[in-house]
């Protein structure tokens, strides 16, 4: 269970360009389900996803994972949590240029110290499962949008996290590819993972995948 209690996030506090992205969000996300954060651009979806996944700390309020307050964790523990508990699928894919697909997928496993062979085998298995076995050695910048998104999903799964956080997973894809990605996310849900999606793409909400929708507007949960 992921719980947010009166969470605020302010960027550049006290400066001329101060921006309050999240304003008092209280929310509980059930495990093993697909939850979608919906809202227009600037509503705070990505920031909220970052707060849930420990990419950034709240300016006020608490974020809890299975009852444990993660917002006050020291950096080292927060990093470990990001590595073990969450798999991130970013809006811009965020693959590293000039590295191969396989190298990109293996990156999150590097700090775990797991044996190279096992990590490599797992990465190839994931790529095979996502239909990318033949692209393992391709440079990441040579990939199409759909391929890059699937690589990002494989990378999110390499450490076998129980929670997948996907930010606008269909934003740069056509309808056919979007449906393909949503099928993959549905598959992850069937495996028992918690999936949180931030999106404003109607296709995501009409595909029957999302079990709960949280509407956001101006950094608040809309009634």
């Amino acid at each position: 269970m992921i719980e947010l209690a009166d969470v605020h996030k302010t960027f550049n506090p006290g400066r001329g360009n101060e921006y309050r992205a999240i304003r008092g969000v209280t929310l509980a996300i059930e495990p093993g389900r697909v939850t979608a954060l919906r809202g227009p651009s600037g509503s705070g979806k990505t920031t909220l996803l970052g707060l849930i996944g420990g990419l950034t700390r709240p300016s006020a309020g608490r974020v809890r994972l299975d009852g444990r307050d993660i917002s006050a964790l020291p950096e080292r523990f927060l990093t470990r949590l990001r590595r073990d508990a969450f798999g991130f699928v970013f809006q811009q894919f965020q693959l590293i240029r000039d590295l191969s697909v396989l190298e990109n997928v293996m990156l999150p496993a590097t700090p775990t110290g797991r044996p190279y062979r096992r990590v490599r085998a797992r990465a190839l298995e994931l790529l095979g499962h996502l239909g990318l076995a033949a692209r393992a050695d391709a440079r990441s910048q040579w990939l199409s949008g759909g391929e890059a998104q699937r690589v990002a999903i494989a990378r999110a799964l390499i450490n076998d996290p129980p929670v997948i956080l996907a930010d606008e997973p269909t934003a740069h894809l056509d309808s056919a590819l979007s449906i393909q990605i949503l099928d993959i996310l549905a598959d992850l849900r069937r495996q028992g993972r918690t999936v949180v999606i931030a999106s404003h793409d109607p296709l995501v909400f009409s595909a029957g995948l999302v079990e709960r929708v949280v509407d956001l507007r101006d950094g608040r949960v809309a009634p």
């Binding site: 990419l55 950096e75 080292r76 990093t79 470990r80 990001r82 590595r83 073990d84 991130f88 970013f90 965020q94 590293i96 240029r97 990156l107 999150p108 590097t110 700090p111 990378r155 450490n159």
Partner: peptide, 18 residues
């Protein structure tokens, strides 16, 4: 580009130390 990559690594669970 390098700063962005460091951000990606950290988001993926790399420690500052790593």
């Amino acid at each position: 580009e390098e700063r962005r990559e460091i951000g990606i690594l950290k988001a993926l669970g790399w420690d500052t130390e790593d």
